[in-house]
Simulated assay, not measured.
Amino acid sequence: MKTYKYENKIEKLGTLYLVPTPIGNLLDITQRALIVLKTVDIIAAEDTRHTKILLKKFKIKNNLISFHKFNEKLRTKKIIEYLKNKKNVALVSNAGTPIINDPGFYLISQCIDLYKKINIVPLPGPCAAITALIASGCSTKKFCYEGFIPSKKNTRIKLFNSLKKERRTIIFYESSIRLINSLIDIKNILGKDRYIVISKELTKKWEYIHRGFIEDVISWIQEDHMRSKGEIVLIIKEKNKKYIKKEKNKKIFKTFKILKKILTEKEASKIAVKIHKTKKNYFYKYLFKKNNM
């Protein structure tokens, strides 16, 4: 029986490399990232002036084009043309892993949806959110990343209200000019006993990581306005079982105080625990402590 050997005649297009760059210390760039930046045909940079500093440091000469939020759709067409012509392109942001709060999502989605033969290669590397998280002391098993805190107060308050029941570690980026206002809103909405971590200017000479309860952190920053200057990652500690129980007891106690105005203490406590669906002995212990303070 005659057999036939079929060859894969699908012609591959160019490769789009997603290249993380240092978030501060230029020595954090990987050897692989340097090789890619040297060998690709074009580097698409969020700010070409910023990227030139990095390339100059490592003596790399290559073709640069701008790729930022104002020209993303227009540049996407141009980059796809390069890739269709078998040219390789590296996408970089100003700092860290591209597309995390940086332009590039539209380009990726177009490459995936329209041209499945374009190879997309992500490189591992620096990311401010993850760098801050691993040094925070907060749980890394489950966390959510919320990006930049909204600049408008109403939108910010709406966001914080939506996170009231969030049990995971929460990561934000924030600007220095809005930090105090955001912290005050977090305190008012999520509670003054929330534990937070402020990471500023990570990997740079003047980096610091400050941990504490939100009221204490606000006071600490207000003592010296320079403490809020720079690039900031804000982390809110996860709600552990102890915190959740304490929070629930507070709600039951609030209900209990209202009922106590018209009922006996025993009747009020019975109804309060029933409303909040909790065990009586947990609340009675809490009530005993309150009455003995």
Rank of each mutant, 00 (worst) to 15 (best):
Q110Y: 12
L123M: 10
K5T: 10
I214S: 03
L183G: 07
A44N: 03
V273M: 03
I42H: 04
K59R: 08
K241H: 02
I23P: 12
N25P: 11
I80H: 09
N71T: 04
I235Q: 09
F256C: 01
A132S: 08
L263M: 12
E215M: 02
N181A: 05
Y145D: 00
Y17L: 02
I196W: 11
K289D: 01
P98L: 04
R168S: 14
Y6P: 00
I130K: 07
E174Y: 04
I53C: 06
P150Q: 08
S66K: 04
Q222Y: 10
E238H: 14
T48G: 05
D216Q: 14
W206G: 00
Y145V: 11
F160E: 03
F283H: 07
I149W: 07
K285W: 00
I262F: 12
R32S: 07
E215I: 09
L234C: 12
K246R: 11
L287W: 10
S176K: 15
E72M: 05
R194I: 14
A44D: 01
D185H: 01
A268P: 05
N88H: 14
I275S: 01
R211G: 04
P103T: 01
T51G: 04
L54Y: 00
D47F: 09
L64N: 08
L263D: 00
I218F: 13
S139F: 05
A90H: 08
I60W: 08
K237W: 00
A129E: 06
I258H: 10
S151P: 11
T140I: 15
T155F: 15
L259P: 04
S182P: 04
Q31W: 07
F288V: 01
I130G: 04
I218W: 08
L18R: 01
N292M: 10
S175I: 12
L13E: 05
I221T: 09
T255A: 07
K142M: 02
I42Y: 07
K242S: 11
I112P: 08
S228D: 00
S182N: 10
I189V: 15
K52R: 14
